[in-house]
Deep mutational scan, measured.
Amino acid sequence: GIQEIVAMSPELDTYSITKRVKEVLTDNNLGQRLFGESILGLTQGSVSDLLSRPKPWHKLSLKGREPFVRMQLWLNDPHNVEKLRDMKK
């Protein structure tokens, strides 16, 4: 599951990941809330907090790293936007 992926993950640049996620969401007119609930399993508040103030990787616990790994996996998925759009319906 995701825990193994997080444990094996190389250090991620949390700042550039969140910046990229925000760009993709904005460009495709997708909400942070939808993204947070569907992709990260987080509430709106947690998501906007994460996206606006990402902590550096080395300061995060494994649990804290999980959303960033999920974001990275989502960014790597060529169908990420379509999938999210489908969830919106």
Rank of each mutant, 00 (worst) to 15 (best):
R65W: 00
Q3G: 07
R85W: 11
D77L: 02
G31V: 02
L40E: 00
N76R: 10
R20N: 08
Q32L: 14
R70T: 05
S9K: 07
R85E: 07
M8H: 09
P78N: 05
E82Q: 13
L73W: 11
I17P: 04
G31Q: 11
L42T: 10
L51I: 05
E23S: 11
E11H: 10
V24K: 07
R33N: 13
I5L: 14
F35S: 01
D86W: 08
L50D: 04
L73M: 15
V6F: 07
L30V: 09
N28Q: 05
E82L: 09
L30F: 09
M8K: 13
L84R: 02
L34H: 12
P10T: 09
T43A: 11
M8W: 08
K55D: 12
P67N: 15
R53F: 15
R33A: 14
T26P: 00
W74A: 01
Q44D: 14
L51P: 00
E23M: 11
S16Y: 15
P10D: 13
K63Q: 13
S38C: 14
K63N: 08
P78I: 09
Q72D: 10
E4V: 04
L12Q: 04
R20A: 11
S9Y: 10
L73G: 08
P67Q: 15
D49E: 15
L62K: 15
R33Q: 13
K83F: 07
Q3T: 10
L73V: 12
G64S: 08
R53K: 13
V81R: 02
H79L: 12
Q3P: 11
D77Y: 03
Y15G: 11
S52P: 11
E11T: 06
R20E: 07
K63P: 06
H58G: 09
F68I: 06
F35M: 00
L40V: 05
H58M: 05
L73D: 08
D86T: 09
F35I: 00
V81D: 00
S16Q: 14
E66N: 05
L50V: 14
N28K: 08
L73R: 10
K59I: 08
G31P: 14
K89H: 10
D27I: 15
S48T: 14
E4D: 11
I2V: 08
M71F: 03
A7M: 12
Y15T: 13
P56G: 03
L40N: 02
P67A: 15
E23V: 06
T26N: 14
E66R: 05
W57E: 02
V47N: 00
S46R: 09
V81F: 04
D77W: 01
M87D: 08
T43Y: 14
I2L: 08
L34D: 15
S52W: 04
V81C: 10
R53C: 15
E4I: 04
S48V: 10
E11Y: 15
F68Y: 15
N28L: 03
V6C: 13
S16M: 14
H79M: 14
L84D: 00
S48C: 07
N29C: 14
E11Q: 09
E23G: 07
K55Y: 07
V21P: 02
P56E: 15
G36D: 03
G1A: 06
K83G: 06
N80A: 14
T43E: 14
I39R: 01
K59P: 00
P67C: 07
T14M: 02
I39S: 00
P56F: 02
G1K: 15
L51M: 09
W57K: 02
T26V: 09
E4H: 10
K89F: 10
T43F: 04
A7G: 11
D49N: 15
E4S: 11
I2M: 08
E23Q: 13
S46C: 11
D77G: 03
R70G: 00
L75D: 00
T14I: 02
L75W: 01
A7Y: 07
V81L: 08
W74S: 00
R53E: 12
M71R: 01
N76S: 11
L12M: 11
P56L: 04
V81Q: 03
V6Y: 06
S46F: 07
I39A: 02
N80K: 09
R20C: 05
H79Y: 13
V81Y: 04
L12E: 05
K63W: 01
I2F: 13
R53P: 04
S38E: 13
K83R: 10
F68Q: 00
E4M: 06
G1I: 14
L60F: 03
M71I: 04
K89S: 08
I39C: 05
N80P: 03
R33P: 09
N76V: 07
E66G: 02
P10C: 07
R33F: 11
S38R: 14
R85D: 09
F35K: 01
G31Y: 03
I5N: 10
V24D: 05
L30N: 01
M71W: 03
D27F: 09
L84V: 07
L42P: 06
W74T: 01
N28P: 04
L40P: 03
T26A: 15
R20Y: 03
K22F: 03
P67S: 15
V21I: 10
R70E: 04
I17D: 04
H79K: 15
Q44G: 12
L34S: 07
K88F: 05
I5Q: 13
M87C: 13
D49Y: 07
V24Y: 04
P54I: 03
I17E: 02
N76K: 15
V47I: 11
P54N: 00
Y15S: 10
L12S: 02
